[in-house]
Design a protein around this nucleic acid. Structure first.
Length: 312
DNA sequence: TAGGCCATCTGGTCCT
DNA sequence: AGGACCAGATGGCCTA
């Protein structure tokens, strides 16, 4: 217990050290110790560390209808888009929007908290309007709609529930692989590519076998796997967010990338270890606490980017 | 507008 | 066989 109290005191002192900043702290980050309330800086607010359940992280975007953009994206002009225009069915192309600080009380990118209810309502209304009886299992995890149009097929009728455009990318890659490995298999894939990976009209249209991709995986299983993958990645992102809130930063508005979070965390852990009389340095150099303080301050300065609040 | 960052999709691999 | 994990590809958003 005494050791714990001592460590806590050292932590308090360490916070004071960091709060003072380095002599050149104002060089790179003008927002250092400014632009936020007192206490935001470097204080590990446990109230912000409420667990972020993976099941609650399945929502990180909303669907917005936007007109087709013209070359805003750096790859849009040179590379084919996977998004197939289906305005007659669902309107213009859908794109992902980032839920940033201007629309969320949290400085970090945590859109799933606010958007989940809205998109659930959208899906619910869509089902009512189109008389869709059964939700697809993959829709349990409210998906990110921005990249492909998998979700469009997932809300179609059962009889149309065939692999149409979502695996176009797979088809391309399959062709490449087949060309390199076994050229005799090219023909079937070419057929799929020619009609947008829909069921070939020459195939037995009376009873359609489940469309399968390169890995002989059904579309339904692919969608479920995508949902699991999204959940997994969301869990990782939530863990990053928890870690980000557990490390010192200039303010809540400071945006740290995942890589920056890891770097600052490493520096922070090293500092704490030195305060506890341990040495977690990779080279066992036993740096002093002052050196650690400078190091972590420098790390934060290097990695930190003050995210400007648009509303201010 | 280029580049960074991130989310998503996808197929491959490994494990249970 | 199916799920977890991983890496590559892709595209959207944001900032300098």
């Amino acid at each position: 217990m005494a050791h714990t109290d001592s460590l806590f005191g050292k932590l308090t002192d360490f916070s004071a050290i960091i709060m003072k900043g380095s002599p050149n702290s104002s060089d790179r980050d003008a927002g250092f110790c400014s632009g936020s309330e007192a206490g935001d800086d470097l204080s590990i607010d446990n109230s912000r560390l409420e667990p972020c359940s993976p099941t609650n992280t399945s929502e990180d975007s909303i669907e917005v209808k936007v007109p087709p953009t013209s070359g805003r994206n750096k790859r849009k002009s040179t590379e084919p888009s996977k998004v197939v225009c289906r305005e007659q069915e669902t309107g213009p192309l859908k794109k992902r929007i980032r839920y940033n600080t201007s629309s969320s009380s949290e400085s970090s990118f945590r859109p799933w908290d606010e958007i989940k209810r809205q998109q659930q309502q959208q899906i619910h209304n869509h089902r009512i309007h189109h008389e869709i009886p059964m939700p697809n299992p993959a829709e349990i995890f409210l998906r990110h709609p921005g990249v492909t149009t998998l979700h469009l097929s997932s809300i179609k009728r059962e009889e149309d529930y065939i692999q149409d455009e979502p695996l176009a990318l797979v088809a391309k890659k399959s062709v490449v692989k087949v060309e390199m490995q076994s050229p005799q298999k090219i023909t079937s894939n070419d057929d799929d590519l020619s009609n947008g990976f829909t069921t070939s009209p020459t195939s037995n249209s009376s009873k359609r076998p489940p469309q399968r991709n390169y890995k002989n995986m059904t579309r339904e299983r692919r969608i479920e796997a995508n949902a699991r993958e999204r959940t997994r990645v969301h869990t990782i992102s939530a863990a990053y967010e928890t870690l980000r809130k557990s490390i010192p930063a200039y303010s809540n508005t400071q945006k740290l990338s995942k890589l920056s979070v890891l770097r600052v965390a490493c520096s922070y852990i090293l500092t704490l270890s030195r305060m506890a009389g341990e040495d977690y340095s990779h080279d066992n150099s036993e740096p002093s606490i002052a050196e650690c303080s400078d190091s972590i301050t420098k790390t934060i300065q290097t990695e930190g980017k003050i995210r400007k609040k648009k509303d201010e």
